[in-house]
């Protein structure tokens, strides 16, 4: 799998990320680092503990990282959770979380496949 195929598979925007980063090099580097980003697990933990503020920050950060890497479909899911938390709606956030979770797991899988083919 190459980077372009990765973006196709995860429904990201390959054209946008390579344009913004001026080529594949940086996009690849940070895509591979994506699993190290702790914001998803922080969000999961905070939701479990009912820590609204930490949950919002984690969701916001995750959203920002997705935005930077043009992980568009993951971004959309993170966005929904983030906005729910911003308005203090914990229940709504919990309702929306599984969708984000599925998408996140799929993205990590794809990153691992990408890593394996390099």
């Amino acid at each position: 799998m190459n980077l372009k195929e990765f973006y196709e598979k995860t429904e990201g925007n390959y054209g946008s990320v390579t344009t913004r980063f001026g080529g594949e090099k940086l996009a690849l580097k940070f895509t591979l680092k994506f699993p190290d980003d702790p914001s998803f697990s922080q969000l999961e933990k905070a939701l479990g503990e009912g820590d609204e503020e930490s949950a919002f920050r984690a969701a916001h950060t995750l959203k920002g990282v997705c935005q930077n890497l043009s992980f568009d479909s993951l971004y959309v899911c993170a966005y929904a959770v983030c906005e729910a938390l911003r308005s203090g709606n914990m229940d709504e956030a919990r309702r929306l979380f599984p969708r984000l979770n599925d998408k996140y797991v799929a993205t990590i899988d794809a990153v691992n496949q990408l890593k394996a083919t390099l």
């Binding site: 940070f30 190290d36 990282v65």
Partner: peptide, 13 residues
């Protein structure tokens, strides 16, 4: 930035 990822991207750029 609180995200290490974001800091790393900026540092790289």
């Amino acid at each position: 930035d609180d995200s290490e990822m974001n800091r790393a991207i900026l540092a790289e750029i």
